[in-house]
Design a binder for these strands. Structure first.
Lengths: 178, 178
DNA sequence: CAGTTTGTAAACTTTTTATTTCACAAAGTT
DNA sequence: AACTTTGTGAAATAAAAAGTTTACAAACTG
């Protein structure tokens, strides 16, 4: 086997890593997060911060930051191995599961942020509406906003159901894996 | 009606715009794109670059850039109105449709980028495998990669079906709007 | 206990992305 | 035809994000 062929194999692995990373950025994570995920994935076993630092050519501190982000997103996990002092990290090996994790954590975040919004707006609008002296024009405007609020709430409830549809695995019943 | 109440109404509209923008960033678009979408949405009728520039406090050039990005993403449309010289832009008013448009354009892009990938890798790997002198270790590695390629292809086909599931509106049969 | 190693915060630097300014062609007006 | 207005490139600047260096506490080692 020539050196050239050895190189080819490694090159193919790097191709995969790039593709995984590329795919990943579509979820809104930074390219480095994607790359690290790809690296651990292709490594087929847990890695330490030092190894990652070595593999990416980036500082250990950066790896620490990236790994933490991945833990937050539920796409990596810290694992314990007896006798090993350094922290070891694995990634989800199932592409579908990774998709679901990122999809749900992104949208769940938005849903939570909007939790209190409609109540606040509604209360405020109704209280203005209850005042005696309002021009007709303004009343129309307020009613528009109230209607808008309702639609917004409906949309968010749909989003929540959608997230659940993915998280529960229901999606795979209708869009099967193979 | 006091000035204060007038202010409250405008404030509520701004709240909406911010929430729309915030929601939007989850699709990976810049905050300004989200904000412009929110502004046109709340305006309830098409707007010109000058109006947008006025409303955002940003330069007209920037608005031109933002609007073009929105056209690319299929979340805005240029419309013609006789007698009006300036270009007018509307946005999709249906939150669900906006979700679907962004979801599909994002993932479609990734799917397209990956179109040729697997063929290239597979050809390359098989050609190495056909060489006579390969260490057992390397053979295992290559077979791993081939298996990986297969899984990757399956995943991408699933993604394509998923995109279609949204684009066709099928999703709403299983996660209904109301 | 003195000496390492490990992970991460804090401050700084670099790179990338967002935005503005300036310029100019194309279309519209008078 | 001279004069405006409109939309958008291209280059420059500002703002934000990504990444590094230094420093240090906590957990290990001998």
């Amino acid at each position: 086997m020539t050196e050239e062929q050895k190189g080819k194999i490694n090159q193919m692995e790097d191709f995969f890593i790039d593709k995984i990373a590329d795919n990943m950025t579509t979820y809104g994570v930074s390219p480095t997060v994607g790359r690290v995920l790809g690296i651990i994935y292709m490594n087929r076993k847990p890695m330490t911060l030092n190894e990652l630092s070595e593999a990416t050519g980036m500082s250990k501190t950066r790896m620490s930051q990236v790994v933490r982000e991945m833990l937050d997103l539920n796409i990596a996990e810290k694992i314990f191995e007896k006798g090993v002092r350094r922290d070891l990290y694995t990634v989800e090996r199932d592409y579908y599961q990774t998709f679901v994790s990122l999809f749900t954590s992104n949208w769940q975040k938005v849903i939570n942020k909007n939790k209190m919004f409609d109540k606040k707006v509604k209360t405020e609008l109704v209280s203005i509406l209850e005042q005696a002296e309002i021009s007709e024009e303004d009343e129309i405007k307020i009613n528009h906003l109230l209607k808008e609020t309702k639609e917004w709430v409906d949309y968010y409830q749909w989003l929540a159901r959608l997230v659940d549809f993915f998280e529960s695995g229901e999606i795979f019943k209708h869009v099967p894996k193979t």
